[in-house]
């Protein structure tokens, strides 16, 4: 496939736009770090609340309360973990200095769906998601722009 000059131009433009989407510093809402405490109830096979939202730099304390069998909580990316028996609340404290969206998962086998017992820790804005959305939009638009539309091309 031979690319026309116009197409090369689009490819370079799309590449630059892609790099911009991936690396551009985004405006960050600066909130002073604070202490955040969540009481998270764990039961087969869900956390409640399942989505925790904090600001970057917050000191996060998760009080894990198991309400049926022994459960645990492991935070992806942070590697912090804790396990709690019913009747014995256990706290996990860490500083959420890494922004982004992190899954937390049960780390004590607690029944059939144990591997899917998942919650979400949202630290600040999920910039990666927005960058990915930007890339997807760019992919769709540049794909359309890069390659000729059917009206302008002869049938194969």
């Amino acid at each position: 496939m031979k690319l026309s000059r116009e197409q090369w131009f689009y490819i370079i433009l799309a590449g630059l736009a892609g790099a911009l989407i991936v690396f551009a510093p985004l405006p960050v809402r600066v909130a002073p770090p604070s202490q955040r405490t969540f009481r998270v109830e764990a039961s087969q096979f869900a956390y409640s609340p399942a989505v925790l939202t904090v600001n970057p730099g917050d000191t996060v304390t998760i009080e894990l309360v198991s309400t049926d069998v022994v459960h645990g909580l492991y935070v992806d990316g942070y590697g912090a973990s804790v396990t709690a028996d019913p009747g014995q609340t256990v706290s996990l404290t860490f500083i959420a200095n890494e922004p982004g969206s992190f899954r937390f998962r049960c780390n004590v086998t607690c029944g059939a769906l144990h591997p899917f017992m998942i919650g979400k820790l949202q630290v600040g804005t999920n910039t990666l998601l927005w960058r990915a959305v930007g890339l997807a939009l760019l992919a769709a638009f540049s794909g359309v722009a890069l390659f000729p539309r059917p009206a302008t091309v002869k049938a194969v």
Partner: peptide, 23 residues
């Protein structure tokens, strides 16, 4: 996922060219 989308866009365009319909 973005790669898959790009690939899908390309495929849709090829199909569009084949069947002469706006993809």
């Amino acid at each position: 996922l973005v790669g898959g989308l790009l690939w899908s866009v390309r495929t849709a365009q090829k199909v569009g060219r084949e069947v002469k319909i706006q993809p």
